[in-house]
């Protein structure tokens, strides 16, 4: 168990290293105008040159990367070139918003898609057909299109919710709820339909298993069979889908946060990449990748717990 986790963390670190390397070199191509963009339109060429030296942009790419790695290894991810905020500070300000958005959505999706998926698998009939049709519609409409429609109707036309975020440090729970409701609904709708569809087919697959018939023949009640046995065996498939959705959402919120002007990681990602703010982009990428690796590790551990066969091997 411990070796498994250590192994996974080890390979995660290697992936992390590869991705930071890749991103850093990619950013190199967009860093040509950094000094000019920081200083603005009225800066003289001498000013620009001075700024470049200050940021180390006059150094060759390799030594820049090594310098960054050396700093990062000591836990210093530097400060943003454009806002002078420390990268750790900037991210820790934004991460709660994005995580609140994504985790809330995922939890709701998990609960609802289990309920709906099980109902569709067991009852079949209209609910099953409804789930199948909804899954197609949910897949068809990108969540940001939904979000646009929601903002237009519920925030702008009807004024039920704030159109832009009222989430700020120290904002009370009400502000969080009001700001997150519409984006969460947009994320949930598009995730729920495919989630329910996946749960449905996983449950159907399990219901077809021989052991279910045997359990029935032993006089075990349908409820116990469904919730103790079938759901447990169907859970790994569901978890995998949820983890994929979670990872997908970390990217997808970029657009959603923009629409609702939410001060989350997505907005930070757009700002920092469009400006070419290397330290900040690196920070955002590293955090995102760490979250992705952690989520995958958690899912594997959960699957091991759910499925003793995997646990042993």
């Amino acid at each position: 168990m411990v070796t498994f986790i250590l192994k996974r963390i080890g390979s995660g670190l290697v992936v992390l290293a590869a991705i930071s390397c890749l991103t850093f070199f990619l950013l190199y191509f967009s860093s040509t105008n950094i000094a000019r963009n920081i200083l603005g339109e009225y800066a003289t060429p001498e000013q620009v040159a001075a700024k470049q030296a200050e940021l180390g942009l006059d150094q060759p790419i390799f030594s820049r990367f090594l310098a960054w790695v050396a700093e990062a290894l000591t836990g210093n991810f530097g400060t943003s070139w454009f806002t002078n905020e420390s990268v750790v500070q900037a991210i820790s300000n934004r991460l709660p918003v994005t995580l609140a958005l994504v985790v809330t959505s995922i939890v709701i999706i998990a609960i609802l898609s289990t309920l709906i998926g099980v109902a569709a698998a067991v009852k079949r009939g209209w609910i099953d057909r409804a789930v199948q049709i909804a899954a197609v519609i949910g897949d068809a409409i990108p969540n940001f299109v939904l979000a646009i429609v929601f903002v237009t109707i519920f925030a702008i036309q009807l004024g039920f919710f704030p159109a832009t975020s009222s989430i700020q440090p120290g904002a009370d729970g009400g502000a969080w709820v009001a700001s997150l409701t519409l984006p969460v609904i947009a994320l949930v709708i598009s995730g729920l339909t495919s989630g329910a569809q996946q749960v449905r087919s996983a449950v159907i697959k399990q219901l077809e298993k021989d052991y279910v018939r045997t359990l029935r023949s032993r006089g075990i009640s349908e409820g116990v069979i469904l919730f103790k046995h079938v759901l447990r065996s169907a859970a790994p498939a569901g978890l995998t889908v949820l983890s994929l959705q979670f990872i997908g959402m970390l990217g997808g919120v970029v657009i959603i946060e923009q629409i609702f002007a939410l001060p989350g990681m997505g907005a930070l990602a757009v700002q920092s990449t469009t400006l070419g703010d290397t330290p900040l982009v690196m920070g955002v990428v590293l955090y995102t990748v760490i979250i992705v690796i952690l989520v995958n590790l958690l899912v594997d551990l959960a699957n091991g717990w759910l499925n003793p066969k995997v646990r042993v091997s």
């Binding site: 991103t23 970390l250 990217g251 990602a269 990449t273 982009v281 995102t288 990748v289």
Partner: peptide, 13 residues
């Protein structure tokens, strides 16, 4: 493991 949209944003930049 790459955050797709962020990579695309960087590439675009």
């Amino acid at each position: 493991a790459l955050p797709g949209i962020i990579v695309l944003l960087t590439i675009r930049a």
